[in-house]
Design a protein around this nucleic acid. Sequence first.
DNA 1: TGGTCGCTTCGGTCCGGGGCGAAGCGTCGC
DNA 2: GCGACGCTTCGCCCCGGACCGAAGCGACCA
Lengths: 235, 235
Amino acid sequence: MSTPAAFAGLAALMGDPARAAMLQALLSGEALTAGELARAAGIGAPAASAHLARLAEGGLVLVHPQGRHRYHRLAGEEVAAAIEMLGGLATAVAPARRWPHGEEFRQARLCYDHLAGRLGVALHGALTGRGWIAPAPGGWQATGAGEAGLAALGVDLTAARRARRFACDCMDWSERRAHLAGGLGREIAACCLRRHWLRRLPPLREGDPLGRRRLALTPEGARQLDAALGVRLAA
Amino acid sequence: MSTPAAFAGLAALMGDPARAAMLQALLSGEALTAGELARAAGIGAPAASAHLARLAEGGLVLVHPQGRHRYHRLAGEEVAAAIEMLGGLATAVAPARRWPHGEEFRQARLCYDHLAGRLGVALHGALTGRGWIAPAPGGWQATGAGEAGLAALGVDLTAARRARRFACDCMDWSERRAHLAGGLGREIAACCLRRHWLRRLPPLREGDPLGRRRLALTPEGARQLDAALGVRLAA
DNA sequence: TGGTCGCTTCGGTCCGGGGCGAAGCGTCGC
DNA sequence: GCGACGCTTCGCCCCGGACCGAAGCGACCA
């Protein structure tokens, strides 16, 4: 099929260390400039420009020129899901001794536009366990209880439904379990940030490709999520 | 983390056309000899040997020496799932005009040890829709009705439970939806083949990397799956 | 309207690694 | 036990592509 060649081309696109670092940095969901991505990848501007052109031509990133900056972001949720899953396989297959980013990174982080880490999989488990979401063709749908409960939390279900997929699974890289993606995943993350239940942490090091994804649960957030959903993360 | 480097290494491993063709061929779930894989990749024996050594060292394939042959198979279900998902992204991102393997390939095929294609996603939908399986931490569990129904079909649930994961989702490459993997997915596929509800089709061309995955539903299989689960594929 | 800045293009270098032929080695079959 | 076979190792060539410095181009600022 077109696939052996297309597959190899896509994998090769991800298979360069510099491009991989760029994609990892873009998993924060932000749109980053070519310069920021060059710093994240640890290469010069000309090399970064060439890499970004290839990523864009390959359909993995979208370019957004704005003044003298060129902003880049991942082309979509499926791209993010594939990167996250490949990262999971990499840690599964390689020794993967320690996590330079500490436990915080496994605890809570962004995966494109939704929540990942222990918090992400705990939320997924709580939503399914309490029957707030139920299996539907191609993903999940909200039940009656779920609509009420999510609305009470402040999740914008109307916005969530506007997404191409309302709710679907995304393989969690560190936990090797599914967390929730799709419009609902995005709106839950947005709600948690808007209500200051989660806050973004600054990168540990300047130019760290993964630093932009770091999140921390606030005391208020821990309280609210426990009360509403029984989500309780081990300290 | 270890990830930018490990991630890139893993992706680069998949990013060579010859290695990609080998991995695709191994998605049939069979263990293939180095020579068969060389033919599937369209390269000579020395090159194939080097590629397979790298795939094995990277943890993607396991080697099984047997006499003067060396059999290779995918290292596990997660490897298969990642390959399948990356293939899906490749078709999503590239034009992906026509399917040289025809509609049969989208209809039913093997994905490692379980069923994929329209049949695979239809089975997934039927099992969830009828409440035979229900969400559980890390995947799915069988309900009471599911245990009875599956046993009546002839699915070996005891064997299914011996797997590391009983049932989990695997992104379907052509349908862009989840189908069922894990021990249950494997046993369902085995049951369908054992009872001649499905039969393996010969490769269209000699040395076709994807040919080994082709399946066809028999009339008896269509009847049985419709009666038991309401699974009916459009002709 | 210069000057600075962000990014791209061009030119050139260099290295990794993918390919093959030939040879070596262990296994199977007559 | 000898040849055939499957696979690996070795030696070699060669090409793609990753990188940088320098230059070019457009956008913002004073």
